[in-house]
Nucleic acid binder design. Structure first.
Length: 791
RNA sequence: GCCCGGAUGGCGGAAUCGGUAGACGCAGGGGACUCAAAAUCCCCCGAUGGCAACAUCGUACGAGUUCGAGUCUCGUUCUGGGCACCA
């Protein structure tokens, strides 16, 4: 009977579903292990091969941990709110509330075909009221902690799409979707005070077992810089280079700086007003990217506190109000941007630090190194109340307001008498009403504001008529706590059960894309810390271990719908089977780097599975047959095969935990080649462990073969094969012999051979000795490996 | 501009501690089986020279350290990603 993946996979899918094989025993698990993967956005196009790649990588790790005897919980849900769904719904004219369940059903079908060990009894969608009720609850917890505030903020506004755009959606000052020129608008927005947590978010990184690239991205995003605030008369500037203060030749204020008026002379007032007006109309992105510096002099001067000199005050939009103090001391000799500005306006340039990092023309500090001077100058100015050491962060507060429809309504009510009133927890969820006119308009307020019947509510405090907040929250809030919910799905009385959470969290292993290295992972860490500080959970970091997976390309090119080169998992599973598809995805390259999907490549993996199938079919049924085969062939063969088997068990057991799936598969293929080369009926003991090794990769096939081998219990409950280190050590080894560092041959020698004996054996070999033209000057023996004779 | 990666056969990739470079797989070539094809099985497969044995060269480029470097150090080029008027 040939290997027929279609039939086998259907059989085992049904078997797993029937037995509840993948359902974790949340209450009673003795050794809980939470293996999480980032949940997908259920798009209308269906499951992307990139999703399948990521999920398979997580699944293999999870199945492996289960075979180590752990109680593994592998949940999966859907991140289904957001502007992406909403825009697609508008485009095709289907309400998202109708579209999303359809997409989810399709995803579920595709995911099940992939053979994932997912516990479907604890799935969720962020769009379920039973879920987003608690997303709103999370908002209220932050509110209680005083970490939520409302303020006017400049946003990118697309006049065509009538919506706020994220910075990433603005390309060269234009809307990425319609190409309209983006405008700057000031809108009232809700913010989370994540910047209060900047130092903790940064420091805790050192304690986490995460990919270095991800940690680095987070450090860059948090952007800590240490420096000082220094007073130039009434103007406080921020600098990281106090050592260059003797080269400060002017001061620059951001156009929005509140002190601009006070520092402007009457003669310059018209020019300054005009400049501020123009600057306010420039959109955020072009302002941040343009290289040409503009600005205007205020006509006044301030005192450089180090030199006592009077230096002019300028206004320019290359200084940002959002960062530092909105004012800088300009040192054109040591800052590229200041230099550009100085050149544009013919301002003096004064070098105060030499190439060798020592100070010149800096008064009493002359001769100090940059490092010494930073401290000495701040200390000296601080003594005169002119400076304070200060740390700044690039990290901004998290704007969670979206003036859109498809998201959880922010649970706030505005009352004329009581002011801003949070919705009482008992009144949650604030349901998102089913409306048809959810297209955003030019008003800058959410479409929900057009629905009085929803918008008008009695004030929870005084009962007079009040108004609901009409903004919905950012999708990143939905995904910032979902991992807390999974184990408690089914209990709608709490967001997460305390004892279950204590048992299962923090997440033991988290796998996902590096595109979420910064926002999602940072927001999740922040929310976890806040809930910890509120006394609701015991840990403050949600993900003990995180690994970012790579990207899949196809035939050397990025996959995209427009190129028509997108891999559809269904087709490949149909043709080759889910097991071959899974294994091939993992064989493409290192999991953390991704790989190149080549259509023909999958045949090699399928051949390997076919051979595995055949070897189980052919393998000897009992010990008597084994003895007979050994007698009939070469008895030494079994020893060789067995040694390779044990080496393979070790290799796969080492590779899988570090997600080195491609090399684990290669090792199993190598073993298969050795097994076949022996040209005899394989022993059952030579094949059985291989079925276990392959099980995380090709779960359906492994279950089937395990059953064919006569086991009543499933392969995932069979444990993991062990290897015998004694078997791995050969008595005789091939010692590589080099002469002057070049390989000239190898000799078969006893494992622990002495240097003298090794040299004797090497010189006794004619192929080697002909290169030894004189008395050896030096001998290097690397035991068990190599001998180098230097002449 | 700053901060992280990366560069190895025709291709994807391997080499875990400085010790036989190219495992494993794809593609390609040759053979067995077959009326034939597919499938399957066996062999070859970095470059150059050589009938061969074998030799020389070879891990982006240039130096260096070392008995020995794909691996370590310095410099250069190209490339992927992150951040970016953040002072």
């Amino acid at each position: 009977m040939p290997y027929d993946p279609g039939a086998i996979e259907a059989k085992w899918r049904a078997h797993w579903a029937e037995r509840g094989s993948n359902v974790a025993d949340i209450k009673n698990a003795a050794r809980p292990y939470y293996a999480l993967m980032m949940f997908p956005y259920p798009s209308a196009e269906g499951l992307h091969v990139g999703n399948m790649f990521a999920f398979t990588g997580n699944d293999i790790f999870a199945r492996f941990q289960r075979m180590q005897g752990l109680d593994v919980f592998e949940p999966l849900g859907y991140d289904a709110f957001g502007i992406h769904s909403e825009n697609y719904a508008l485009k095709v004219g289907v309400h998202p509330a109708e579209m999303i369940p359809r997409n989810i059903a399709n995803f579920r079908r595709q995911l099940e075909r992939g053979g994932l060990m997912v516990d479907w009894s604890r799935s969720l969608s962020t769009t379920d009221p039973e879920y987003y009720r608690w997303t709103q609850w999370v908002f209220l917890q932050l509110y209680k902690q005083g970490l939520v505030h409302k303020k006017a903020a400049a946003v990118n506004w697309c006049p065509t799409d009538k919506t706020v755009l994220a910075n990433e959606q603005v390309i060269a000052g234009e809307c990425e979707r319609c190409g309209s020129k983006v405008e700057q608008r000031f809108l009232e927005q809700w913010f989370f005070a994540i910047s209060n947590y900047a130092e903790r978010l940064l420091n805790n990184l050192d304690t986490l077992d995460w990919s270095d690239t991800t940690k680095t991205a987070q450090r860059n995003w948090i952007g800590k810089s240490e420096g000082a605030e220094i007073w130039f008369d009434g103007i406080k500037v921020f600098t990281t280079r106090p050592d260059t203060i003797y080269g400060a030749t002017y001061v620059v204020l951001a156009p929005e700086h509140p002190l601009v008026d006070a520092h402007t002379t009457d003669a310059q007032r018209a020019a300054v007003e005009g400049y501020r007006d123009r600057a306010s109309r420039r959109d955020l992105v072009s302002r941040k990217t343009t290289k040409d510096k503009t600005g205007v002099a205020t006509g006044t001067t301030v005192t450089n506190p180090a030199t006592g000199e009077q230096i002019p005050v300028w206004v320019s939009d290359y200084v940002l109000m959002e960062y530092g103090t909105g004012a800088i001391m300009a040192v054109p000799a040591h800052d590229e941007r200041d230099l550009e500005f100085a050149h544009g306006f013919a301002l003096p340039v004064k070098q105060v630090v030499r190439e060798d990092e020592t100070l010149v023309e800096s008064g009493e500090f002359t001769g100090m190194t940059v490092h010494e001077a930073k401290h000495a100058i701040v200390k000296s100015l601080a003594a005169m109340q002119k400076a304070t050491p200060v740390t700044n962060y690039r990290l901004h507060d998290w704007c969670i307001s979206r003036q859109r429809y498809w998201g959880p309504p922010i649970p706030i009510i505005y009352c004329d008498d009581c002011g801003v009133v949070p919705v009482p927890e008992k009144d949650l969820p604030v349901l998102l009403p089913m409306i048809d006119d959810f297209k955003p308009d030019d008003s800058g307020v959410s479409p929900l504001a057009r629905h009085d019947e929803w918008y008008r509510v009695p004030c929870p405090t005084c009962g007079t008529m009040a108004r609901r907040e009409t903004d919905v929250s950012d999708t990143f809030l939905d995904s910032a706590w979902y991992f807390l919910r999974y184990p408690s799905v089914g209990d709608d009385s709490v967001p997460f059960d305390a004892s279950i959470t204590r048992k299962w969290l923090p997440v033991d292993s988290y796998i996902g894309g590096n595109e979420h290295a910064v926002l999602h992972l940072l927001y999740s860490r922040f929310v976890t810390m806040v809930l910890h500080d509120a006394g609701l959970i015991e840990f403050e970091e949600p993900f003990t271990r995180f690994r970012a997976h790579g990207l899949i390309i196809r035939e050397g090119a990025k996959m995209s719908k427009s190129k028509g080169n997108v891999v559809n998992p269904d087709e490949y599973i149909e043709t080759w089977g889910a097991d071959a598809f899974r294994t091939y995805l993992m064989f493409l390259g290192p999991f953390e780097e991704g790989g190149d999907f080549r259509d023909k490549g999958i045949s090699g993996v399928r051949r390997f599975l076919d051979r595995l199938w055949a070897s189980v079919r052919d393998c000897a049924a009992d010990a008597a047959t084994d003895a007979a085969t050994d007698a009939a062939t070469d008895a030494a063969t079994h020893a060789e095969v067995e040694r390779k088997l044990h080496a393979t068990i070790r290799k796969v057991g080492e590779d899988v935990p570090r997600l080195s799936y491609n090399t684990a598969i290669a090792a199993m293929m190598e073993y298969m080649n050795v097994l076949r080369k022996s040209d005899r009926t394989p022993r059952r003991s030579e094949v059985e462990p291989l079925v276990q090794l392959v099980a995380p990769f090709a779960p359906h096939l492994a279950e089937e073969l395990w059953q064919q081998l006569g086991h009543a219990q499933g392969v995932f409950d069979s444990g993991w094969p062990s290897f015998d280190p004694a078997l791995l050590a050969e008595d005789e080894i091939d010692l590589v012999v080099q002469v002057n560092g070049k390989v000239r041959g190898k000799v078969r020698v006893p494992r622990g051979i002495s240097e003298a004996d090794a040299v004797a054996r090497a010189t006794g070999d004619a192929a080697i000795s002909r290169f030894i033209t004189s008395e050896p000057k030096k001998i290097v023996l690397v035991p068990g490996r190599l001998l180098n004779i230097v002449v």
